[in-house]
Each structure stands twice: as structure tokens, then as C-alpha cells.
């Protein structure tokens, strides 16, 4: 099976120097990779997530990489007031914000018929409503200070539906179309907003596949391999940079072509879909 080859750095040293980045979801592997990429390129970071221990680990990794100490603050995005207070604190810590990244990705897979209300709510309230609880106070600050801003949200690859994860697919679709709307409404305030859809990535602990299916899922795309956390970190670094200054309301899918071919089942695959060959 082909493996991703190591690749040279994409961005020039200091490509994000001085950029004030507020990053939610730094407590998961994708968020941590984004923090390390942006931090290594000179960004100043404010990190949030539900898991304070994981945030501390991310901060330690940044210091170890020589990227400087980030501000950290735990946050449950499902709570609008808490999210707004967190945005205030992050803004104060950095003296403003240039780039807001949301890598929050709560998961609770289940067959739709068996999905418990709390699992629906946990995912939708965090991934979807939480995204709104984050972008609204930030955009209000940008408007009130007449400062431009950029939003990048990392979402699940929902485009073909997400069997076994109806909650996640609905939330991701919601975030994309919320993004498209604010990209229009807030263009007047020099705010850009885009999404990155991340497929199966090696090293992302955030993907609880059923035992035994991990290998099948990793190759469930035309490239027949998992992507890397770097693939998504680079996509965010691009959309968050001035190189993408004319890109807004868009979706960049980083999934090895998985939108076209391949199937991933975060729950046991129903017999109906075990295709006769």
C-alpha cells in the first residue's frame, strides 16, 4: 500500500509571524497539529477545548517546538455564554485576533435508529451550535474594532451523508452553510470564512472506529491510504493566510478523494451494505 511520502515545508519561515490565532479544539489531534503548524510559523496562539489536560499537553508541545507559550483556557462551546466569555479572554490575552480556527469535533456514532437523544444533542450542540457561539462574539468584536478577520472551521466530510453518524454529518453540513451565509453577510466587515473537510487521518485519536475496521476505513478512498494531520494543518494554514485573501464561503476537502469513492462506517456495517463481489 502506498504511504504518504515525507514532504518539505510548504510555507516560508515566519509565514504567520505575529498573527493572533484563537483556536478552539486544541484538545484533539487535528487541533494540536494546527496549533503546532501555525505556532511554528510564528503565530501567537490562544487555545481552547473541553479537555484542560489535553490543552496543557498541546501547550507543552508548542513550547518544546520552540513556538512560544500559548494562552490556554478550557471551554465548552455548547454553552453560548461560556463561549462568549472564552472569546473575550482569548481576545484580551492576545490583544486582538486575526484568525479564528475551530477544530472542535465531538463524536458519538450510532446507527440512526439507535441514536440516543443525548448523543444527538452532544454533537449538534457542540459542533454546530458551538461553532455559532464562537464566531458570533468574535465577529462582533471584529466589527466593533473595525478590524478584519478570518475564520477557518474544520468539519467532517459529510457530503455523501455520514451513515452511523447522522449527528456529526448534520452538524458539519450546518457549519458549512452557516459559513457560506456569514461569508456573505460579513464580507462588508472584511471577514472571510471558510471550511476544511477532513477525511480519515493517521494519528487522529478522534476517530473511534469499530475494532477491526480501522484498516478498511483508512483506505476507503481512491488513494487507498489515510491522510496525515499535516495535510489538514497545511490546509488551515493556507486558508488562514493572506494567500487565500480572495477565498471566502468555500470548502476545501482533504480526504484523498473519499467524497467520490469509498465508505467509512463508524459503527458495524449493516449486512445490507456488505456488497456481493
Amino acid at each position: 500500500m502506498p504511504e504518504p511520502s515525507p514532504r518539505p515545508a510548504l510555507f516560508a519561515p515566519g509565514a504567520h509571524a505575529g498573527r493572533r490565532v484563537v483556536l478552539a479544539g486544541a484538545d484533539n489531534a487535528i487541533g494540536r497539529a494546527i496549533a503546532l503548524r501555525l505556532g511554528s510559523l510564528g503565530a501567537r496562539l490562544a487555545l481552547g477545548g473541553a479537555d484542560a489536560g489535553a490543552l496543557a499537553d498541546c501547550a507543552a508541545a508548542l513550547r518544546a517546538a520552540g513556538a512560544g507559550a500559548p494562552w490556554t483556557g478550557p471551554v465548552q462551546l455548547a454553552h453560548a455564554d461560556e463561549a462568549a466569555r472564552w472569546v473575550d479572554a482569548a481576545w484580551a490575552a492576545l490583544g486582538g485576533c486575526d484568525l479564528l480556527v475551530n477544530a472542535t469535533a465531538r463524536r458519538a456514532p450510532a446507527r440512526a435508529l439507535d441514536m440516543r437523544l443525548e448523543d444527538w444533542r452532544a454533537v449538534v450542540d457542540t459542533n454546530f451550535s458551538g461553532a455559532w457561539h464562537l464566531v458570533l462574539p468574535m465577529a462582533q468584536r471584529w466589527r466593533d474594532s473595525a478590524a478584519p478577520g478570518t475564520i477557518v472551521s474544520v468539519i467532517a466530510p459529510f457530503q455523501r451523508g455520514m451513515p452511523g453518524a447522522a449527528n456529526e454529518g448534520a452538524a458539519a453540513a450546518g457549519v458549512l452553510y452557516m459559513t457560506k451565509t456569514i461569508a456573505v453577510e460579513w464580507a462588508a466587515y472584511r471577514i472571510r470564512a471558510n471550511c476544511v473537510a477532513a477525511g480519515v487521518l493517521a494519528g487522529s485519536e478522534n476517530q473511534p472506529w469499530p475494532p477491526g475496521d480501522a484498516a478498511a476505513i483508512a483506505e476507503a478512498n481512491p488513494m487507498r491510504r489515510a491522510g496525515t494531520l499535516d495535510d489538514v494543518a497545511d490546509a488551515v494554514a493556507f486558508l488562514g493566510s493572506d494567500a487565500a485573501g480572495f477565498v471566502t464561503g468555500d470548502l476545501l476537502t482533504v480526504d484523498g478523494g473519499g467524497v467520490l469513492w469509498g465508505e467509512t462506517w463508524p459503527v458495524a456495517k449493516p449486512d445490507f451494505f456488505k456488497v456481493r463481489t
Binding site: 500500500m1 475496521d213 484498516a215 478498511a216 483506505e219 476507503a220 487507498r224 456488505k274 456488497v275 463481489t277
Partner: peptide, 9 residues
């Protein structure tokens, strides 16, 4: 052949 199933059915 590239697209043949490789993982568990």
C-alpha cells in the same frame, strides 16, 4: 484491482 476490497468485509 486497485479498487478491490482489502479490509474485512
Amino acid at each position: 484491482a486497485w479498487f478491490a476490497p482489502r479490509g474485512p468485509a
